[in-house]
Structures are given as structure tokens and as C-alpha cells.
């Protein structure tokens, strides 16, 4: 661990920010076309973030500021760990559990500062966000556990390397199809897209945790959201869709996966939070358990089908 790792980490952060923000802007156009209108400019998300950073802000105390910094710091650290097409800024630390739990630092920091604003809407939003996390994480973790057992490794770069070189049939989403379906549904929950976005409901709970954020806090939240999206889509991409052998293949697969989830969520309504929990504990959980039993007891899907 020397200075070059930190420099690489910083470059990764900047590149990820530019790529993800552009992709979000393009997806705003995709959503707009779904609704038969033109939509915003492709660089609109950059304008939003810089405008938010430029405004003055109000603060309710030191925990309000500290939580935002802790959230963004934790998420930035997680982004540095993600392997992109085999390149890692800090080699060897891309364990899937480390990444999932460092995501929780981000969520905890945001929850802390939201509740520290003293607004009950924020606390309700955080309670819903935590319940949502319980709902989508259990089926997803069972499928990830199955894959760690099958491939005897819990490192993202190793699992994605094992799927490459065999074309589309090598992807885990094809070899373990039930797991792939559960992964995409859980990805919708993780990203907070409809139908699972009741914790940011603008008209219902006044945008939930972000109710008292203005100015730079709001800018930080937007940057946080971009990085969190990158981490979550990258985890699913590396585990189920084979990562990417080269950087261009990675970015292309990433863009297709993200746009796909965006299109699904563009036509869905919003679940109430207990409906979301009940949904996740019925069909996705059943599929994850069946997939797990099939892999553990018969070994089907660990090798290629054809």
C-alpha cells in the first residue's frame, strides 16, 4: 500500500463520477421518451449537482454535517474497492461482504444526519429505508452465499473472471437463472427505483431523509446517490453478468444493465413498504432458496450447461 494506490483511487473516483452522472442524465432522457416527451439535456445531472453545491445551506447542528461527510466518505471508500475490468486501485480487497457492509456505513451516515435534523418526515423515511434494506437483502444474500459456496471464492474480481471467455453462456445469470432473476429484482430494490422507492416519496413524506437538505448537503446527497448506484450495479454485474474483460465491454454492459432497470421502473407504480417486504419474502425468497438447494445438492449450474 503506497501513494500510487491512493492516486489510482482518486482517479477511479473522478472517472466513476463523470461516467455515472452522464449515464444518469441519458437515462433521464430515456424515461422522458417513455413518457412521450423530450426530457432534460444529457448533462443536466451535472448542472443539478453543481447548482446544489453552489447554493448556501442551512444546518441543524454538528451531527447534521458530520453524518453527511461520513456517508459520502464511506461510499467513496467503497467505490475505490470495486474492481473495474480487472483493475483494482487496492488489489485484493474486493470481498463481497466488505463492499456490502461498507455500503451500510453510507446508509447509516445518511440516516444519522437525517434524523439529526429533527424533522419527523426524515425519521419516517429512514425507518422505511431500513425496512426496505431488510426486504431486498435477504434473498440477495442467499444467492450470493450460494455463489461463494459454488465458486469457493468471495472476491468480486475472481468470480467475474471465472465467467469470462465462454461467451454469453458463461454468465451466472444464464447458468443459475433463478439467481439471476432474484438479482435483478433485488437490484431494483437496492437502487431505490419504483416499485421500491417509498422511502423517497416526494409527495407522501416530503422526500424522506432529504427533507432538510439544502445547498451543499443536497449536492453531497446527489453525489452519494450516483456512487451508490455505481456500486450496486457493479456488484450485480460482476457476480451475475461476468464483469468485463476490457474497460469498454464493462462500460457497455453496465450501461445496458442500468438502462434496463430504468426502463422496468419507468412503468411501475410504487409499493407501500409492507407490501414490498411481503413481496420480497414470498417469490424472490422462494426462488433464492430453490436455487441454493439446487446448487448445493446437485451442483447444477456450477459448470456450464452446454
Amino acid at each position: 500500500m503506497n501513494v500510487m494506490n491512493f492516486v489510482y483511487g482518486f482517479i477511479v473516483l473522478v472517472c466513476v463520477f463523470i461516467f455515472q452522472t452522464t449515464l444518469t442524465g441519458l437515462n433521464r432522457k430515456v424515461t422522458a421518451r417513455l413518457q412521450k416527451r423530450y426530457g432534460a439535456r444529457w448533462y443536466q445531472q451535472f448542472l443539478d449537482i453543481f447548482k446544489a453545491l453552489r447554493k448556501d445551506s442551512t444546518s441543524h447542528g454538528w451531527v447534521f454535517d458530520f453524518g453527511v461527510i461520513m456517508a459520502l466518505g464511506g461510499i467513496m471508500a467503497t467505490v475505490i474497492f470495486i474492481p473495474v475490468a480487472g483493475f483494482q486501485a487496492f488489489p485484493g480487497l474486493d470481498n463481497v461482504f466488505v463492499i456490502s457492509y461498507l455500503l451500510a456505513v453510507g446508509m447509516l451516515g445518511m440516516a444519522m444526519s437525517a434524523a439529526g435534523s429533527g424533522n419527523p418526515w426524515a425519521s419516517i423515511g429512514v425507518a422505511r429505508a431500513l425496512t426496505n434494506m431488510l426486504a431486498y437483502d435477504v434473498p440477495l444474500m442467499i444467492v450470493i452465499f450460494t455463489m461463494i459456496f459454488a465458486f469457493d471464492s468471495s472476491s468480486l474480481s475472481e468470480i467475474s473472471a471465472m465467467q469470462q471467455g465462454m461467451g454469453i453462456l458463461g454468465w451466472n445469470a444464464i447458468r443459475m437463472p433463478l439467481g439471476g432473476i432474484v438479482a435483478i429484482i433485488a437490484l431494483l430494490g437496492m437502487l431505490g427505483k419504483k416499485p421500491f422507492d417509498s422511502f423517497i416519496a416526494p409527495a407522501e413524506i416530503a422526500s424522506g431523509p432529504m427533507v432538510e437538505y439544502g445547498g451543499k448537503h443536497l449536492g453531497f446527497m446527489f453525489i452519494l446517490h450516483e456512487f451508490m448506484t455505481f456500486i450496486e450495479v457493479s456488484i450485480i454485474l460482476a457476480l451475475f453478468f461476468g464483469g468485463g474483460a476490457t474497460i469498454w465491454e464493462y462500460l457497455l454492459k453496465y450501461a445496458i444493465l442500468y438502462t434496463f432497470t430504468n426502463i422496468i421502473s419507468g412503468v411501475m407504480p410504487r409499493f407501500k413498504i409492507d407490501q414490498a417486504v411481503k413481496y420480497f419474502f414470498k417469490l424472490p425468497l422462494a426462488m433464492a432458496i430453490i436455487q441454493g438447494l439446487v446448487v448445493i445438492f446437485t451442483g447444477l449450474g456450477v459448470t456450464l450447461w452446454f
Partner: peptide, 14 residues
């Protein structure tokens, strides 16, 4: 190392 990188991210955000 996880702790050090976490500190690095925190420093950038700060």
C-alpha cells in the same frame, strides 16, 4: 487497509 481507505474517503469528503 479497509480502515485506512475509509479514512481516505472521509478526508476527501471533508
Amino acid at each position: 487497509r479497509v480502515f485506512i481507505v475509509f479514512g481516505f474517503g472521509f478526508a476527501i469528503a471533508f
